[in-house]
Every structure is written in structure tokens, then in C-alpha cells.
Simulated assay, not measured.
Amino acid sequence: MNALRTLAFSIAFYGGTVLFVATAALLSPFGRTPVQKVAEAWARYHRRCAAGLLGICTRLEGAVPTGAVLVACKHQAMFETLEVVIILCRPQVVMKSELARIPVWGWIARRYGMIPVDRAGGAAALRRLMVQAREAVAEGRPIVIFPEGTRVAPGEQPELQPGFAGLYRAFNLPVVPVALDSGRLWPRHGFTKRSGVVTMRFGAPIPPGLPRREIEARVHAAINALERPGAERELGPQS
């Protein structure tokens, strides 16, 4: 049953995505705002498909931040990358540069304000990230970063990537950590999703200006607040 629900979701969501991308491309000559509105509508469409076809919905805990702030989010599935577009106010999301090379979609993502970063690019990639993120700060928009660098399975708690500390130091912004457990229902590997509730827990803001070791330790602990070692194995076989 889960496999059939996942198949129905894939057909509906990815089929609809083609229409949203085409609409955004047609509206892009009229500025960034129409593209952002289409992106928000696409994220809401994803939420409806996930709820209606997969039986996956979101429970928010804690206070959702507003204004210019760094949002350091755990990353276990594609699910949260679209949820943050709805939950936050037009966030700029730091994404891996490979996504920006997807034909048409990658260009639209840049037009929306996504920030592609080459994870293997070293100091040069970090400088480009800083330049692009300054625009978000000037506009009072939140910047979402997945500080562990990539999707991880439930129970995994890798060290934070250096780009997070660089942003924190450069922009002198408070950090709001976000713990989540989407990987229980939306596994990193495999096709089939499971129904249930994804918890997204927004932690208390952490002030700017802390030493690197302290900010990294506090953020690492906060984004992993819902983690349990071996959680992925506890799911068992999927039908």
C-alpha cells in the first residue's frame, strides 16, 4: 500500500512540478516577486500532495522566526526543503550547486533567491556564498542552511560543515536551530514513503558573537534533539 501511495504521489507531484516551472519561466521577465509567488504555490502543492496521497503532515514546535536570521536546519529528506518555503517568509535557502545546474529549474531557483554552493569549492565557494547571502540580510529575509552539508539518515549526527560558522561570523545574526524527524517517513534511500507526522522543532534563538566551538556545539546539539541512534533500523520493512 505504501508503495502505491508513493507512486501516486510521484506522478501527481512531479507532473504538477512541470507546470509550476513553466509558469515561473513565463513570469520571470516581470521580476522576482512573481517567481517567488509561484515557488510558494509549488511548495503548498507539495504539502497537499504529501498530506493527501502519502498521509504525511507537519507538526511545528517552538516559535517560528521572522526577519533576518540564520535558520540552521537538520536535513533528512526533500520534504523539509519545501516546507521551509511555506513556514518561513520567503527564505533564501543554501543548496548544493548540482541542483542549480538542473535545466530550467535551476535557473528558476536562482531567480527565487536560492543560494547554490559548491561543497568542494573551499574558500572561494565560501566567499561566493557570502556575497549572495548579503542580499537576503539586506532584505530582512531568513537564510536557511543545512549545516551538516547533506541529507543524513535518522540517528546520524555528522559534524557541521565550515560554511555555517563562516556565515554566523560574517553576518552577526542570531541562529535558530531546527530539529526534525522526516527521515522516519521519507527515507534517504529507497522509493517508498510512510504515512505519519513530521515534527519540526524550532529552538530558542542563539545570540551572535559566540566563539566557533560554542556555536557549533550548541547548534549541533539542538538540530539533533530528536535523533535516536539506530532509528532508521527501527522502521522495519516497508510494504
Results as ranks from 00 to 15, higher is better:
N2S: 05
N2Y: 02
L7P: 10
I11E: 08
I11R: 11
F13M: 13
T17E: 15
V18R: 10
L19K: 11
L26P: 05
S28M: 11
F30K: 07
R32H: 00
P34A: 02
R44G: 03
R48I: 00
A50C: 13
A51Q: 12
A51H: 10
A51S: 14
A51G: 08
L54N: 09
G55D: 04
G55H: 01
C57Q: 15
E61G: 07
G62P: 06
A68V: 01
C73Q: 00
K74E: 04
Q76T: 01
M78K: 03
E80C: 08
L82W: 00
L82Y: 14
I86P: 00
C89I: 06
Q92Y: 09
Q92A: 15
V93P: 12
L99S: 01
L99P: 03
A100W: 13
P103C: 03
V104M: 12
W105I: 12
W107Q: 11
W107V: 02
I108K: 04
P116K: 07
P116Y: 11
D118P: 04
R128V: 06
M130K: 11
V131T: 13
Q132E: 14
E135L: 12
A136W: 04
V137D: 07
A138F: 03
I143W: 05
F146D: 01
E148V: 12
T150K: 12
E156S: 06
E159P: 07
L160E: 02
L167M: 13
A170L: 11
N172M: 13
V175W: 03
V178F: 00
D181Y: 09
S182W: 00
W186D: 06
W186I: 01
W186C: 09
W186E: 04
G190Q: 07
G190D: 03
T192H: 11
K193Q: 09
R194P: 10
V197A: 06
T199F: 04
T199D: 09
G209I: 11
R213K: 14
A217Q: 08
A225P: 06
A225I: 01
A225T: 05
L226C: 07
E227N: 14
R228I: 15
A231M: 06
L235R: 14
S239D: 14
